[in-house]
């Protein structure tokens, strides 16, 4: 643990990952390809947790399991004390490739969750308005995803997940495909959104600056089979500065630790 005085109140965890492992049948069909092994950690209410690891180390696989989109081959995941057995609207997911519904307009994408759950018409409308406003896309209600830029699409992805008002948000490298400029902007936006609409966020990235800019806590993952190498509690004041000495020190510390594992 880097710092002793964390800003997270260690009450009941909202998500528990208990000894989770995941293997796939290897491509020749004979052996097993072990991607995750013995993952143990908890996530606390309103915490911004970053899972940080190199490319292809199994981050998406882990996040899918935590969200209930995939089942572990070993161990289990508990959300609010209940075992996770499938996808549920109490958990929201923001995808690496945005995965918007391309035949729906922006407002239909954002309103999808409330509508399929049969919330009252008025409530659906209100949520669309509120969350499009939150991500700064008011005025684009009638646009199709193909008419938007990459950054705007990912804003829609975030609004779509928020519109269900889930307890936990899962974000899988949401800014991975954006250019550096847009990426910085979106990181600041996300921080603002998270401070405005407090939620537990589990955020996956392979970018150390992004991790340090956003996280309350960083979990460093090793390469395949992936397990937890180290945890860091990040207590720097927000908004953070990329060239702050403390920022640079932590950056050095974590990347050094990471390089050893490659």
């Amino acid at each position: 643990m880097e710092r002793s005085e964390g800003n997270i109140k260690k009450k009941n965890p909202v998500l528990e990952c208990r000894n989770v492992g995941r293997s796939f049948d290897s491509y020749d069909g004979k052996g097993k390809n072990e991607v995750l092994r013995g993952m143990n950690f908890e996530v606390y209410e309103n915490e911004f947790l970053v899972l940080f690891g190199a490319g292809q180390c199994g981050k998406t696989t882990l996040l899918n399991i935590l969200a209930g989109l995939d089942m572990p081959t070993e161990g289990e995941v508990y959300a609010n004390g209940e075992k996770v057995s499938g996808p549920a609207p109490e958990r929201g997911f923001v995808y690496q490739k945005t995965s918007l519904f391309p035949w729906m307009t922006v407002e239909d994408n954002v309103g999808f969750g409330p509508k399929v759950r049969h919330l009252p018409e008025k409530e659906c409308k209100e949520r669309i308005r509120k969350y499009l406003d939150l991500v700064g896309l008011t005025g684009f209600e009638k646009s199709y995803p193909s008419q938007l830029s990459g950054g705007m699409r990912q804003r829609v992805g975030i609004a779509r997940a928020y519109a269900n008002e889930p307890d936990i948000m899962f974000m899988d490298e949401p800014f991975g495909h954006l250019d550096a400029q847009t990426r910085y902007m979106m990181e600041e936006e996300l921080q603002r959104i998270w401070q405005q609409e407090k939620r537990t966020v589990i955020f996956v990235t392979n970018n150390i600056e992004e991790a340090l800019f956003l996280a309350d806590r960083i979990i460093l993952l090793t390469n395949c089979p992936t397990h937890i190498k180290q945890e860091y509690s990040i207590t720097m004041q927000r908004p953070r500065d990329y060239v702050d000495p403390e920022f640079l020190r932590l950056r050095q510390l974590i990347t050094d630790n990471m390089d050893l594992t490659l």
């Binding site: 209930g68 989109l69 996808p87 549920a88 609207p89 929201g92 997911f93």
Partner: peptide
């Protein structure tokens, strides 16, 4: 998966 996650 996204649709199921959103409650469909």
């Amino acid at each position: 998966g996204a649709a199921r996650m959103l409650g469909a």
